[in-house]
Design a protein around this nucleic acid. Sequence first.
DNA 1: CTGAGCACCTGAGGGC
DNA 2: TGCCCTCAGGTGCTCA
Length: 271
Amino acid sequence: MPELPEVETTRQGLLPFLPAKIEQVDVRAPKLRYPLQGIEQLTGSTFTNIERRSKYLLFQTSSHTTLLSHLGMTGRFAVLDSSVPLAKADHVIFHLDTGQQLRYHDPRRFGIMLPIPTVELHEHPLLVNLGPEPLTNDFTATTLHSSLKNRKTPIKVALMDSKVVVGVGNIYASESLFRAGIRPTRAANKLSKAECTTLVHCVKETLAEAIAAGGSSLKDFAHTDGKLGYFQAQFNVYGRADKPCHTCGTPIEKLTQAQRSTFYCPQCQPR
DNA sequence: CTGAGCACCTGAGGGC
DNA sequence: TGCCCTCAGGTGCTCA
């Protein structure tokens, strides 16, 4: 997926098209992660704003319903002219009063699209247990150190736990730990307060730079205007196994943690 | 509560 | 060209 920078880039890319009235909705798949029920009921209402919480996009509408959406691993929104041919994985099409279409495309269908009454949104099970937003003052060395204190799991695995901090996925977990000089295998509860200070700073910096660069584009992420982000050109370790570290030249190492690939520099991240 | 492992699903790429 | 295997940006669920 798209990690937080890609989700935020998507949000910012869609905002200029709002407000937009929904004239028709075509649902072309029975389900994504959850059944696609009730989406058609948005017909006639207007998308008024898009907010983001964690990697969820919250499409506010004029009908007191918020469309809660997640891009999963391969989801993508695009606003396209109706003359553009539909693709196989274009699962939900919103026909807008501008003549354009907001299309949700997701080959693996791990994404989410749920209409939720806006008054119930903040107590929704998918949102209620989320940890702090990484780019706000809710995410500090103090909160991180505290949430790690009973966690024997490796710091890289803990960083990807949405109860610790939201929005840090597999790429930016490795990249943030590289910047912080912390080895991903360190037990989370062994990080000092000073290391938490460094790590919080590096997570914020990495995510902010990625957003500024327009996100990274691997296989399935494209901007809503079809242009590609270029943060992937700045990866220090992700996907660079056996290649020389940009800082010291030592070959980058790859290992598996919680069934996900982790990359690090053994020299720059000594422990 | 934590941690380990599986589940969902398609497509791309490598080896033979 | 085809087949089989591995891997991929997420995260909710079950079970110990």
